[in-house]
Each structure stands twice: as structure tokens, then as C-alpha cells.
Design a protein around this nucleic acid. Sequence first.
DNA 1: AGCGAGCCCTGCGCGC
DNA 2: TGCGCGCAGGGCTCGC
Length: 309
Amino acid sequence: MPELPEVEVVRAGLEPVVAGARIAGVEVVEPRSLKRHPQGVADFEERLTGRRIRAAVRRGKFLWLPLDDGPREAVLAHLGMSGQLLLRTEDAGTDRQLRVRLVLESPAFGPITVAFVDQRIFGSLAIDPLVPTADGAPGGFGDPAALVPAQVAHIARDPLDPVFDDLDFVRRLRARRTGVKRALLDQTLVSGIGNIYADEALWAARLHYDAPTARLSSRAALTLLAELRLVLERALADGGTSFDAQYVNVNGASGYFSQRLHVYGRAGRPCTRCGTPIVREPFMNRSSHRCPTCQRPPRARAGRGAPAA
DNA sequence: AGCGAGCCCTGCGCGC
DNA sequence: TGCGCGCAGGGCTCGC
């Protein structure tokens, strides 16, 4: 489950179950799902068993469960393209693509299993040490502690983070010498945004994906940030975007935001603003969706990087 | 600094 | 039916 709203749906679903829960058992079914845990399967299983989870925390698309007792560390999760964290009662049947299972003893729910299910195995779990945040503010949403997993330390705050610095974002965005969508997908500049919400926010802000960041006015950059927040918040309110059963909450339920998308996945259908058919174009080995009328290509600039005449 | 390519994977829908 | 192809929400590393 990819982008910020979908990951936040998962975090919020886990929180009441995992807070204060003891890890009674760990089973790694697929060792490749520990790509972020180089110490290997046995180390992961042994070190986690018996530990107590304090909370469920998220920054951007990264999720972690800080552990209370013992070393200052957390269970880190990145869902990649297809990862899910599902809650299962112990007698429930095994999920087809179950990769890792954490059996918990939850104060609120009793015995319950967190199943890490991941079709493509791009996601990963790990035990990661917690390090202090650079700015002294909480590491993510869901825990006041000013700590982040070491593997998340280079990830920027996301636009829904109360400590997100709007003016600093505008400054850094405009200092880039690249296209605006490429910048939005760079998780070290701003986190939580992926292909869907980048396309949706750019449509709302009437920007072409290749619009040079250096030529964005501060006002345009702030507008874009406001549209990003709007689309992320609306998607979150709808439970995230689900095109199929792959993007679901901890109970396996889909979100409804796909019904409100304006460009993503709508190639050939009319722009909801002007009626022009939406186009899908290759971009960064993926696809970009835009309205050819509302989001005109940037005009070529003379000098370095300009297309040959 | 930035970027393209390549890599990590499975599975679905489509056209032939 | 079966097969090959293109496509899918991400991120990391490398060489230029």
C-alpha cells in the first residue's frame, strides 16, 4: 500500500491493537521480506520475541512500532508497492502471500496476529535502531518521542506533519534544477507522495509534471503544497485509494478515493474541469497522467537543456 | 546535483 | 486455452 493516506489508514488501524501489546511469537515465512534487516531471519525472530510495542508511528510512507523494553529500537515496515499489514485472529486461515507473522498479546484485543502480506516483495520489515530527530521534534505521527528509525532519518517530513516547514519546503523546491513532479516524488524533499497524489495535486495546481522547479513562483509553490495537503487529507478521509483488493486497511476493507480521482488512471476520459481527454505519458519508467489543456508543457528555455532547434 | 537505467518481484489483463 | 507482453501505488544503487 503505497502512499501516505493508505499507510496512515494502516497505522491508525494498528494503533489501538498494538499499543502496549507483547510480541508472543514471530514467524518469517519469506526471508526476502527482511531486505531491510541484514542480520537475517533468526536474529529478527529472536530479538523481537517477548518485546513490548509502545505505539504505531508513521512518517511519509514509512511505518514503525517503537519497542518499550530493552534497546531503543523499533519494528520498521515499508509496504513497497503491494505490502499489507492485516489483523487476523489466531484461528484465521493463512493469507496466500503471507510473508511474516507477528503474534501479539494485546491488552485491548487479546491474542491477535499482524500478518505482513506482500505480493511483490518490494516491501520489507526490519528491526531498526531509533535515533534522535535532527530538529528535536517528534519523529512521526503517532508518538511524541523525538526519535526515528535510522533508515528513516534521511526521509523528509510529510505535508500532514505539524512540524512541516512550508517556507523551507518552498525554498528547497525552488532551489532544485529539475521538473516539479520529480521533486515531489523525492522523499528527501517531501515524503508521502507517490504517483497517484503527485498527479492529482499537479492537476489541481494546473502544473505540468516537467514544469521547472526553479521557475515556480513562491506563490505557485505554496498553492501546490496546499493542493497536496487537500488531496492527501481527502484521500485519508475516504480511507485511501483502492483499485483492487490490494490496497486495504488492517481489516481488509478498501478505501473509496479512487472515485474522486481527476487524472490518475483516467486516460482517455474527459477532464472534469474542461472536458479535454486526459492523457497518460511515460515518466520515470512509470506513467504520468495530465490534462493537455489545464496542464500545458513548459515552454522550452534557451541555453543548456533546451531541445535542439 | 541530478538523472537514467537497472534492480528488487508477482500477478493481472489483454491481444494474438 | 495458452503464451507473451505491458503494466502496477516504491526505493535503492550505480555510473555518468
